[in-house]
Each structure stands twice: as structure tokens, then as C-alpha cells.
Design a protein around this nucleic acid. Structure first.
Lengths: 272, 272
DNA sequence: CGCGCTCTGTGCGCTACCCCACATGGCCGG
DNA sequence: CCGGCCATGTGGGGTAGCGCACAGAGCGCG
């Protein structure tokens, strides 16, 4: 039913194998070594002081996240928190009629599973790997304990959560007021900020599901961008050629979200 | 410019004067005494154990919130947290072009100003009194201190915040997929749950701004509801006559949000 | 008690997006 | 290297909601 292959499984530890085909380009800032997964590749982990890090290390397990993998389902108890390093995870809501929409994207700047420390234990959303890659995970009980014991951990997690809230709110407004063209630009930029390189491995149909629009609508918008020379793509690959132009064409929502992330997570900018 | 009179002022302490014209009907559960404001009228405060309450009492100041009053502006430092008892506050996002949309509503079940304890100190949203009434406020510094010192306070605030997140996410999806008719029903129900009685003091134009649609669209939807006998209204007043029928006509979003609030805030149901 | 502001009702042309159907063509696996 | 699947391109008809313009009517205020 869903175009994203439902690999539903919370408890499948991954190997360190890199499946994210990131172009091996000029990206000094995005140091992501495929061979040896480094927790520092996640912004939240990287922002922790040494004292916290030391405790965390033994609880962090490297995981590979494959495209379409479901980290948790609506209402289901969340067992692990995920800290992506090169992967990107979408938080999706699905309506009764099957229509869906992404309410937020989480990449190396964040954590998937905030309900663990917010107190609920589950959420009405679904977490799906939007872009294959790697990350780490931590048992929920450990995270809860860390959250309640360490002020620095708490601060880092809550600041990130506030940024996430801002993203969700902005997407809500964007859904109401902006055109598919603008939203596609916004989505490309937010996704790009969460990955190394300037290429995304994603089909137009997947984007359509994220944006909650028809696939044809995305095709049209993508065509316009390609004709204008801002992007180029082929079956399942999109490359942003002129990032600045895409930013100009995007609605303000990208800038607002980006600014809020930069403000709240200053040492670990979400972007390039 | 905005139809909601911009009474922008964070630091105007209110008197206990009741301005919310709630119909004096059969509402045993919604005990809101106009004369003596009672902090227990707010769900978060009411959920606190006696030990916390005792400390809080001296820091809680009763405030009257008037229609259209702005509690804070985007990006501005938040000085106080507000705990509505009979008032309802909308969290709005306004786009560059002036278009707006409500991303969440806060009533007696919640608190306005989560950025105080989430760590940001401000948000990109605007908080506007959607329905006049009363509440309490607390200095930001006190709330921050309480949040970091008391585990029970922290739990209560974070659980509420998670419910708020669910509301925002659901509204994002609702904005994408549901018709104005459905959204109007959803909005009426969510507002009703946060107030005593079954009448709302609100113009169709205000609703239009909340939903981020044209005023005419709201008129049409409201007409349909009135013709069907589900509501009745006159200049600035809307009364829900058949709540059950409105629920049926609403999209699922109301039910999802309501369920999540009930799940996370069990002792203080958001509704009647 | 009546003036006037504001809220509500209505019509009309327009656009963005939806739903459906189908053509083309790249790419993967055999 | 080739067949078929799946991603992308295109078109046509339908509709929800927008922008604009204006009419009527309730209600507060003088």
C-alpha cells in the first residue's frame, strides 16, 4: 500500500555497513567515515560534555538504517532512541484514508524518539527512514535515566525538541499556504541540510508522500526546477545544482526553520 | 491589519474581573468561579502534588486575558508563563505575506510559554488570546527554577508539551488533507473542550485566521452546519447544538488529538 | 432611537491541485 | 543483452478554495 517498503522492525541491530550512496565529494565539514561509525557524527551526542559521553559510549549501538525502514509505528511503545549520523528519518502522520504527510525530518542534528523522555512513551506518528545511512541507538530506559540524572543531557535534548517543535509548526503553516513548488524547494533544502553531499536518493513518489501531495504534482514542480537549471535528476536521484537559487525559490519556511535550528543548536549547525 | 485587536502587552497584570461571557448553564464539571480565581482551574497546576503547589502559590498571579491580547510575539523573549483557567490562547504562525494559521490552542489543560523551560526563551510563534477569560501567570525565572528542581513539575510540563506536539503535528496534516468543513468542526470541538459551556465568542473572520482560510470559506461551512441544525450562531457567537453530530462531521484529527491529551493528561481531561 | 461599524451572505471568475488514464523510457536482474 | 518493472512525463476533466466586490443586517454607542 505504501510506496515505502514496510521493513517494520524496531529491534534489528545494524552492522556498520554503509548503504547510503553519498557522492564522495568535497565535503570537509561532513566528515562521515563509512568504515568506523563515530558517535560524534550526531550533533546531540557531539554537544555533550566528556562526562556524559563517557557514560553514553557503552550504551550506543551503531545501526544501519535502510530506506523505508520503520523505526516505530503510531501508538506503539518506543524501545530505542535513534541518533542518526548519515541517515535521515521522517516523522509521518497517516490519515484514516491513507493520505500521509511528513511533520518533521530528523537527521544528524537530532534524535528520533523524543516521547521516551517527554513522558509519553509513544506518539501518534510514524518514523520512517527517508534516506538510508547510519546512526546509533540507545535503549529507552537508559535514555530516560540519563535525561533525569544529567542536566546537560536534559538541556541538549530539550533544546533539540524545541527546534523540532518549530519545524513542525512551520510545516503546518507551509501546508496551508504555500505552493508545491515552494514546498519542494523547502523539502530539498531541509533534507540536504541533514545529509552529506548535494544528492538525494529519493523518488518523486516518496517526496509526494512526504509533502502529502500527488506524485504528478511533484513531477511538475521538479520539471520546472530542472528546466530552470536548479536541479538535475534521474530515476530516484536528485542533485541540487544551484542551492542558492533553490533557497530563493523556496518559501520562507526553510529559512525560519533553519534559523531556529541554528539558534537553538549553535555548536552543531544542522546544515553544511 | 490583523482583525484581532493588537493589545500587545506582556506585562499588564489583570484584575480578577470576568469578561468571558459564558452561559451559566448545567456545567457541574467546569467549576469556574468568576469571583475568586482558583489556580486549580488549570489542569497542570491541579495535577501538582501539594508540596509543589505550596511553593507555587506565592508566584501565581491572577490575570484577565482579553480577546485579541497578544501574550508574546515571534522571537521576543518570553517573560511569563501563562496558565489559562477559562481563557483560550492560540499559538499562531504568520507568514511574510501576512497569511496566518493556528498551530495549536491552549486552554485550561495547559501552559503558554513552553520555550521558557525548553531552553529557547522564545519561539517563532505568536500567542494570541482567542477566547477571553482568566488565568494565572508566573515569572519565567521561577518556572525555570521549578522545572529544574522538581521532578513532578518537570513531568507535568513535559507530558503536556508532548500532547501539544501531537496537536501541532495533527494540525499540520489536517491543513494538508481535510476540507474547511471538517476543519471547522475540528476547531469548534477543540475550542469547546477548552472552555466551559457550549458557546464560543468568536467571529467567523477570526476562525478564518485561525484556520488560515478565507472568511467566506468559513461562512459557507458555518452555514452548512447551521442548516443541518448542528450549530446556531449570531454576530460573534457560535453555539454548538449537537456536539455528537459535529464530532461525526469533523475529521479524525479531533479524535486523535483528544485521545492523545486524554492519554497523557489523564487526571485532567481536556474536555468536559 | 437611529447612525454607522462590523459581521455575515452571495456571486463570479480564476487557479492550484486532485483524480484518472496512459505513454515513455531508464535501469536492474536474469 | 534483453525483458519487464517501476519511475517519470503528459493530458483532460473536475473541484475546493481564493480574490474581489458588494449587499444586507445585527448590534453597540452616542
Amino acid at each position: 500500500m505504501s510506496p515505502m517498503s514496510p521493513t517494520t522492525s524496531d529491534d534489528r541491530p545494524g552492522t556498520g555497513t554503509s548503504s547510503g550512496a553519498s557522492s564522495p565529494s568535497h565535503d570537509a565539514l561532513n566528515a562521515s567515515k563509512p568504515g568506523a561509525p563515530d558517535p560524534q557524527g550526531n550533533g546531540i551526542i557531539a554537544s555533550l560534555p566528556a562526562a556524559d559521553l563517557k557514560r553514553w559510549e557503552s550504551h550506543l549501538e551503531p545501526v544501519a538504517m535502510s530506506l523505508g525502514q520503520v523505526l516505530y509505528e503510531p501508538g506503539a511503545t518506543v524501545n530505542h532512541a535513534y541518533f542518526p549520523t548519515t541517515a535521515v528519518v521522517s516523522l509521518l502522520y497517516v490519515t484514516e484514508s491513507g493520505a500521509s504527510a511528513e511533520v518533521a525530518a530528523v537527521g544528524r542534528e537530532g534524535i528520533v524518539g523524543i516521547s521516551l523522555f517527554m513522558g509519553g512513551g509513544s506518539t501518534p506518528s510514524r518514523a520512517v527512514v527517508q534516506s538510508a545511512g547510519e546512526g546509533f541507538r540507545m535503549p529507552g530506559a537508559v535514555l530516560r535515566e540519563e535525561f533525569s540524572q544529567s542536566g546537560t543531557v536534559r538541556l541538549a535534548l530539550l533544546k533539540y525538541t524545541q527546534a523540532l517543535i518549530a519545524q513542525m509548526a512551520q510545516i503546518a503553516v507551509c501546508n496551508r499556504h504555500h505552493t508545491i513548488d515552494q514546498q519542494l524547494c523547502r523539502w530539498l533544502l531541509l533534507s540536504l541540510d541533514r545529509r552529506p553531499g548535494n544528492e538525494l536518493i529519493v523518488t518523486q513518489e516518496m517526496i509526494a508522500h512526504m509533502l502529502g501531495v500527488r506524485r504528478e504534482g511533484v513531477t511538475e514542480a521538479a520539471l520546472a526546477l530542472q528546466r530552470a537549471g536548479l536541479i538535475s535528476y534521474r530515476r530516484g536521484h536528485i542533485t541540487v545544482l544551484d542551492r542558492f537559487a533553490v533557497e530563493k525559490r523556496s518559501c520562507e519556511c526553510y529559512g525560519v526553520v533553519r534559523a531556529e535550528y541554528d539558534r537553538l543548536l549553535p555548536d552543531e549547525p544542522a546544515g553544511r
